[in-house]
């Protein structure tokens, strides 16, 4: 089962290696990992999607790393998950409009058009991106790159937020 961890770390050399090596040591496969600056100066946010039955022990082990400040497990229905994909599909002049039609449905943007292929950019929910990719496959996917998943917790509203506060 895939789980998403949001790890708030000090922006120091070697932190990524420490986090990745700890997950590797436990035998967890990293499905996706995205790192970038956070809302705080000098701090980075890692979004890690791992394949693991449970993460309690790994969260505690990650916490032992001196440069790791905070770890949150993001539950899919209580968080926003986004990905960006650049995909090059085979699109000779005769098939371009077909490709663009599908792109339009998914709000994908053509970012490079050549004689035989076209590069599209799409951002959004990881599920949606996968659907888009599946529809493009019959045309011939020549190359693709994904950003890796980034995620933020949703703000809790109404009843739920009160319930959380009590817990």
């Amino acid at each position: 089962m895939y789980r998403t961890l949001s790890v708030f770390v000090e922006d120091r050399p070697g932190v990524l290696a420490r986090v990745a090596s700890l997950l590797a040591r436990r035998g967890f496969n990293i499905r996706s990992l995205a790192v970038g600056p956070s809302h705080e100066e000098g701090m980075s946010k890692m979004t890690i999607v791992v394949e693991a039955p449970e993460l309690e022990q790994v969260k505690k082990q990650l916490h032992k790393l001196v440069n790791v400040v905070k770890i949150t497990e993001l539950e899919p229905d209580r968080s926003l998950e986004r990905e960006i994909m650049l995909v090059r599909v085979s699109a000779p002049p005769g098939r371009r409009s077909e490709v663009l039609e599908i792109a339009d449905i998914f709000k994908a943007t053509p970012v490079d058009v050549g004689h035989s292929s076209m590069c599209l950019q799409v951002a959004g929910d990881p599920g949606k991106i996968n659907d888009f990719l599946e529809l493009l496959r019959p045309f011939g996917v020549v190359d693709l790159a994904k950003s890796g998943r980034i995620a933020l917790a949703r703000e809790l509203k109404g009843k739920e937020s009160k319930l959380r506060a009590v817990n």
């Binding site: 070697g14 420490r18 040591r25």
Partner: peptide
């Protein structure tokens, strides 16, 4: 050294 000793130390510095 820091790579080799990463899993053998509580923390290390380069």
């Amino acid at each position: 050294t820091t790579g080799i000793t990463m899993p053998a130390t509580k923390h290390n510095y380069f």
